[in-house]
Design a protein around this nucleic acid. Structure first.
Length: 483
RNA sequence: GCGGCAAUAGUCUAGCGGUAGGACACGGGCUUCCCAAGCCUGUAACCCGGGUUCGAGCCCCGGUUGCCGCACCA
């Protein structure tokens, strides 16, 4: 935990992230727009490192990554159910201005349930961004103007998953008609949130990293070949109605029916493992099961990995859903769409297990949990304690003093490391202490300092971020020590 | 979307209806043999658009963004 009151610390994290080039709100010079953030140089490095870790993590599951479009024609979202569940007509009360979705229980004819005032139409909730594909009218295909306009409607994807589902048959062929198999996708998704707030927590444009695992419900769901690798892993689980998390092994949770099946349990455990491996403190993680009425239109069992933020309390960073055959069946209802797989037990529609990571929220969680303030003498030391592998800058190189003979040696060491593809910075400005502090603030795990002894015996000091300890290392061994 | 509050250098802030000031950060220089020391010096700001006024950073209106509450979060 950091030193100081929470109020102070909250602002410090966001302020540091902005000032040091991690993230800032988009379009600043034009006054900004809520729900959009840009990643600066260090934020982009951090994000790439997490994405690479993620790719590597799921590569080891034997999954392949694909990249599909971010815009899709209306039809896709009609089939997927998003159009219906994302864009309800809305009404607004003339008196109290409350907004309601129109459903069976509430039409324009009735009074405001809050205050009894009259209701007026208020457009629609378009949680999906709409756009037009092509010139608009398409009379060649016949039909009315209205139908032609409808055909030209496109939407920005609200999740990356649909791009995987609609390619199912090609992906199945790629996998030589065998189940199970998994497909990854990292990319932007868009939701036109009514009221985005909370920095990276609720964005209108954000990065999802999604895994869709297609399984044979009969053969696979309770028979994951690597379940034993994770079965003893302890998870913090919160079930509907419970106030607090309960520690349970994955095996216990599955065998007692808390987690719907072994396959889902396996992937929940892997999510937990991934979050730990990028450096989120396990004490601040839990898995919360959705209530029935809280689940998305596609899910049959769903768990959120939640991170305990000091500022926002428990927040969802990953959703792990058993989507059943919802998506493939939904698309299969369209003419000419076939989502069946021939197995030994006949024609089936596979089920989908889906871990879906909110990369921006994970980055927020990492920034917040890595931020520490320490009192060093009279000075405050601010440090981002990233795990070494995800730190944007791996090492900084300094000459102890700003003198030519030290500078030229320091630059030589700097270039050597840079040529070894290590993310390295050179700094000769200000006192040595000041340079250490600058690197602490952006989470650089090691600093290398060149002094007069270096000129004699070719050794340098390597200073470690968290302990501030120094060790003497020979330059040729530097690369190995840093890695 | 609604209501309340707010908006000044990169960051944090001071400011009277009449010359925008400080601290830190940053750049240049000096000093300095390992943790934001010191000295000199430089760059840098009134969210946007209207209005009132001889004159608006300050008052009024609208917008934008942020914070808090309500609603929303498939």
């Amino acid at each position: 935990m950091g030193v100081g009151d929470k109020e102070g610390r909250r602002d410090e994290t966001a302020e540091l992230a902005r000032r040091r080039g991690f993230i800032w709100s988009a379009f600043e010079v034009y006054g900004g727009a809520a729900g959009f953030y840009d990643y600066g140089p260090l934020g982009t490095l951090l994000k790439r490192r997490i994405e690479e870790k993620w790719r590597d993590f799921y590569r080891r599951e034997g999954f392949y990554e694909i990249e599909t479009t971010t815009i899709a024609p209306r039809e896709i979202f009609e089939s997927s159910g998003h159009l219906e569940s994302f864009t309800d007509p809305a009404v607004r009360c003339k008196e109290c201005k409350s907004i309601f979705r129109v459903d069976e229980n509430l039409t324009v004819a009735v009074k405001c349930p809050e205050c009894g005032g009259g209701l007026e139409a208020s457009g629609e909730f378009h949680l999906m961004f709409q756009t037009r594909i092509g010139a608009g009218k398409d009379k060649g295909k016949g039909g009315s103007d209205e139908e032609a306009i409808k055909r030209s409607e496109g939407y920005l994807r609200p999740e990356t998953a649909q791009g995987i589902f609609i390619n199912f048959q090609r992906l199945l062929k790629f996998n030589r008609d065998k189940l199970p198999f998994g497909i990854l996708q990292i990319g932007k998704a868009y939701r036109n949130e009514i009221s985005p707030r909370q920095s990276l927590i609720r964005l209108r444009e954000f990065t999802l990293a999604e895994v869709e695992v297609f399984v044979d419900p009969a053969a696979d769901k309770n028979n994951h070949p690597r379940f034993e690798e994770v079965e003893d892993r302890m998870l913090s689980l919160v079930v509907p109605g419970a106030d607090e998390a309960e520690e349970k092994s994955v095996e216990d949770a599955v065998s007692s029916g808390i987690i719907a099946n072994e396959y889902l349990g396996y992937h929940i455990a892997r999510v937990d493992e991934f979050l730990e491996c990028i450096g989120l403190p396990r004490a601040r993680l839990q898995f919360r099961q959705h209530q029935q009425d809280e689940m998305a239109h596609y899910a049959i069992d769903c768990w959120d990995a939640e991170f305990l933020s000091e500022r926002y309390r428990w927040m969802e960073i990953v959703g792990i859903a058993d989507r059943g055959d919802y998506d493939l069946s939904a698309h299969a209802r369209s003419p000419n769409v076939n989502m069946h797989v021939h197995t030994e037990s006949g024609e089936i529609i596979p089920h989908v297990i889906e871990p879906s990571y909110g990369i921006d929220r994970i980055i927020y969680a990492l920034l917040e949990s890595a931020f520490y303030e320490e009192q060093i003498g009279k000075e405050k030391r601010r440090v981002l304690r990233f795990k070494r592998e995800i730190a944007p800058i791996q090492v900084a190189v300094f000459p102890l003093l700003n003198r030519d003979e030290l500078k030229s040696k320091a630059v030589a060491v700097f270039r050597m490391l840079r040529d070894a593809a290590i993310a390295v910075e050179y700094d000769n400005s200000g006192s040595i202490g000041k340079r250490y502090r600058r690197q602490d603030e952006i989470g650089t795990p090691h600093c290398v300092t060149i002094d007069y002894e270096t000129l004699e015996d070719n050794t340098v000091t390597v200073r470690e971020r968290d302990t501030m300890n120094q060790v003497r290392v020979a330059v040729p061994e530097l690369k190995d020590v840093l890695e």
